[in-house]
């Protein structure tokens, strides 16, 4: 299959005079899986909607390259048929599952027999074989999401865009969708670009993780975001969130937001003496496992996410309620 590459150039989208997307350049190679990772308001949905031609960028745009595609207006219609978006909280037409999935094929003029085959194949991929005659309105949340993805898969698009495919669905459906993303990429060589809040899923499933924050691609995933202001601007400045004061290295006194990478926070039972300028006593309020790691949520006045290996976690014998110290360098704090 001919590869379709998407290249973002000086892409800017402004909503209500606020810049919600600003990506100077990015290139999506064909046949890969990409994930857009970031908090709400990072611009993930806006970017996917632009890639799917649902909204126009304010300036700049996306170049589509591939042997049979040029960037002419008449090619746009063909491109739309090669790029399919499954929206977050997808809508199923008020009819059967089969008619939902075959809709895109029907408007492409496919013969009935071919459609039936594609529908069956797509339903098997999402683990819903035999659901053809079910009414869309009678499906559960997870099934709706899977049928919506099957509706996209049936078209065998060159690029499949998925907006938060695993949000608000049951664990079983999540597992199936993870497999589907990998399978569609391998089997049909489809480029998959999906957005997610789940960093572990992003790394597990995709070839490349694109961390987005406030409409821009950032160097590393932004977590532990805190609002506040610089109350002392100096060589080492002080950022006050209203609940805690942190030493930061700021280039401008205008910063209103900071973030701390959970992997760069040191956890200890006792207060440790080091060159790191930030050390806080806190209480573990939540523990969750993620592959070989354990995520803690620690309340230090602000709630911080901290990531440590299972081995360290077990050695420290931490439980919910444990009192611990969090230590991190001022230079690890990102400032926005």
């Amino acid at each position: 299959m001919e590869e379709l590459k998407l290249e973002i150039k000086e892409l800017v989208k402004i909503f209500n005079s606020k810049k919600v997307l600003d990506i100077p350049s990015y290139r999506f190679e064909g046949k890969k899986v990409y994930s857009l990772y970031g908090p709400n308001g990072a611009g993930k949905t806006t970017l996917l909607n632009i890639l799917a031609f649902l909204i126009e960028p304010t300036s700049g745009g996306v170049l589509f390259t591939g042997a049979e595609f040029r960037n002419s207006v008449e090619d746009k219609r063909n491109l739309i048929k090669e790029i399919t978006l499954v929206q977050q909280n997808p809508y199923l037409f008020n009819t059967t599952v089969e008619k939902n999935i075959s809709y895109g094929l029907r408007i492409r003029g496919m013969a009935k027999e071919g459609m039936r085959k594609r529908v069956g194949e797509a339903l098997s991929m999402v683990g819903l074989a035999g659901f053809e005659k079910r009414k869309a309105k009678e499906l559960s949340g997870g099934e709706v999401q899977r049928v919506a993805i099957a509706r996209g898969l049936a078209l065998k698009p060159k690029v499949l865009l998925l907006d938060e495919p695993t949000a608000n669905i049951d664990e079983a459906s999540k597992g199936i969708l993870e497999k589907v993303i990998a399978e569609v990429n391998k089997k049909y060589e489809t480029t998959v670009i999906f957005s997610t809040h789940n960093l572990s899923l992003a790394y597990r499933v995709s070839h490349e993780v694109i961390p987005l924050f406030e409409g821009r691609i950032v160097a590393s995933p932004v977590e532990n975001i805190m609002q506040g202001k610089i109350i002392k601007f100096n060589e080492v400045s002080v950022f006050d969130t209203g609940r805690v004061k942190l030493d930061v290295v700021a280039e401008s006194p205008e910063a209103t937001r900071i973030s701390i990478n959970p992997e760069e926070i040191l956890v200890s039972r006792e207060k440790i003496s080091s060159s790191a300028r930030n050390s806080f006593k806190g209480r573990v309020i939540q523990i969750s496992e993620e592959d070989r790691f354990v995520n803690l949520v620690v309340d230090i006045g602000e709630k911080l996410k901290v990531k440590l290996t299972k081995k360290s976690f077990n050695e420290m014998a931490l439980t919910v309620g444990s009192e611990i110290y969090l230590t991190f360098k001022s230079s690890t704090i990102q400032i926005f």
Partner: peptide, 13 residues
């Protein structure tokens, strides 16, 4: 409103 965008994302004119 998702009816419109859904049809559009599936390639409808």
């Amino acid at each position: 409103p998702r009816v419109r965008t859904t049809a559009m994302t599936l390639g409808a004119n």
